[in-house]
Design a protein around this nucleic acid. Structure first.
Length: 453
DNA sequence: TCTGGGGTCCTAGGACCC
DNA sequence: TCTGGGGTCCTAGGACCC
């Protein structure tokens, strides 16, 4: 918590719906719902006119239609939203070098870096009123709610207090009296599950939370969450405003109108999604080692399966192959409503750097050679064959290649090409039946010795 | 035919290492 | 006979956020 109210939180009101109303005057003053319009869609944003009928974010579109049949139901136009968001973020960055966007419609601004004459309540209040006018100017009429306080937590609480089109400054020293009567769900990280756990021990408001010891909280909600709650309940929050945060994963998923049962159709969806993921990775100059398949079954049971490559990839073919082979382990016969593919463990270097020349490649081959005999699998999945980098020759659809890295579950192969070495690198599940390999008898014994050791 | 899509962070258990 | 302890990596699932 800072001595002065120097953290600003800005939140654009009913953002997606407001952009639609701005761009289509016939929608102004009317209920507008933006989100999925299909049978399995949900509401992303409802205009305040639609909220009057009880329409809320995350509600199924089916229910929203029942509550407000005369609303305009629109799918999102994300290019327009990105444009408006960019204008606002640009404005904020012209005020302070330290701007932390949380989403398209929300950001923190560090006012200590804004060059204001001082950080008195009157000064930051005047600054924020001027900022709200300028937001309207740069967006063609969108309104923003703004909160200013001595920490991120309280700035966000403040921006929520007078929505829409409001401004609240929580004066330093008044944080606890503001917070104590509020429901625990104002605390970031306190969602339905935590609310229920707290309710069972008689905790409803922030003031009740202050009565719990640190140990009780940790027992109730876990180590990290418990400590965080203990401090936030006392308005203690030192989290800095951070301008740049690196992406940790990239994913694409889709929910289908009718449950999928055809494996080949699922595989072709995964292949397309892997292509999207690969394109987005390449566009950001990223690559990642862990490929995750996400499957939501007909009954909403959600499963994930992942495999980690020996080296990062952004290659759509590799991502697709791994995703499809992870799907092969799951029973999807009763129907799948959602499929998705993601890549995590991101590094901001591309795979090609690894084998730019022969010396680099030799290092990569040598490293996993000694340390990674194929262990017994811990789960039900049978162990794949043991692949030896630099020893085994692989035959697969791409032709013939040498094993280049062998993880527990994944083998990477560098294929030979007629023209210019090195050939393409592709990764496979170690137990992929599409692979066949050959190993000279002499080195077979040598490798067996090493595996025993 | 209740329940999106894109993320982040945490937990817990097993493998493995020193 | 008894049975370390910490640290890291990996996987699966869950809570949460906008």
């Amino acid at each position: 918590m800072r001595p002065q109210a120097s953290v600003l939180h800005l939140d654009l009101d009913a953002f997606f719906a407001a952009v639609e109303q701005r761009d289509k005057p016939s929608l102004r003053g009317k209920p507008v719902v933006v989100g999925g319009v299909g049978g399995r869609g949900v509401v992303a944003t409802a205009s305040y006119e639609a909220r009057a009928y009880g329409v809320r974010s995350a509600m199924s579109t089916r229910e929203a239609r029942a509550r407000c049949p005369h609303a305009a139901f629109l799918t999102g136009r994300f290019e327009a939203y990105r444009g408006a968001s960019g204008a606002v973020m640009g404005l904020l960055r012209s005020c302070s070098p330290l701007v932390e966007p949380l989403s398209l419609d929300e950001a923190f601004v560090d006012l200590e870096q804004a060059g204001l004459p001082d950080l008195e309540v009157a000064t930051v209040t005047a600054f924020a009123e001027d900022l709200r006018v300028r937001v309207r100017e740069v967006t063609g009429g969108l309104t923003a709610s703004v909160g200013i306080a001595s920490s991120k937590f309280l700035a966000k609480v403040a921006s929520d207090l007078r929505k829409p089109d409001g401004l609240v400054v929580i004066a330093p020293g008044t944080e606890l009296e503001t917070l104590r009567p509020m429901h625990v769900s104002v605390i970031p990280g306190v969602g339905p599950a935590t609310v229920e756990r707290l309710r069972r021990v008689g905790v409803h408001k922030v003031v009740d939370l202050e009565g719990l010891s640190r140990d009780e909280l940790v027992r109730l909600v876990g180590q990290a969450h418990g400590h965080s709650l203990y401090h936030l309940a006392r308005a203690e929050d030192d989290r800095p405003v951070v301008a740049e945060r690196e992406a940790k994963s990239v994913s694409v998923e889709g929910t289908y109108e009718h449950d999928l049962t055809d494996r080949r159709q699922m595989e072709s969806i995964l292949t397309r999604q892997a292509g999207d993921v690969g394109r987005r990775l390449k566009a950001s100059g990223l690559s990642g080692r862990t490929v995750t398949l996400k499957v939501r079954l007909y009954d909403f049971t959600t499963l994930s399966r992942s495999a980690t490559l020996p080296a990062p990839t952004e290659d759509a073919v590799t991502i697709a192959r791994l995703a499809r082979s992870l799907l092969a382990d799951l029973d999807t016969s009763a129907g799948v409503r959602l499929l998705g593919v993601g890549v995590s463990g991101l590094a901001d270097w591309v795979q090609e750097d690894l084998f730019a020349d022969q010396a680099d490649q030799d290092e990569q081959e040598a490293e996993p050679l000694d340390d990674r005999p194929e262990p017994e699998q811990s789960g039900a999945r049978p162990a794949g064959p043991t692949w030896a980098p630099g020893v085994d020759v692989i035959h697969a659809e791409h032709g013939r290649g040498w094993v280049w890295g062998a993880g527990r579950q994944v083998v990477t192969v560098r294929f030979e090409t007629a023209d210019t070495p090195p050939g393409p690198v592709r990764s496979f599940r170690a137990d992929d039946p599409a692979l066949s390999h050959w190993r000279a008898p002499a080195v077979q014994e040598e490798v067996a010795d090493r595996d025993d050791a």
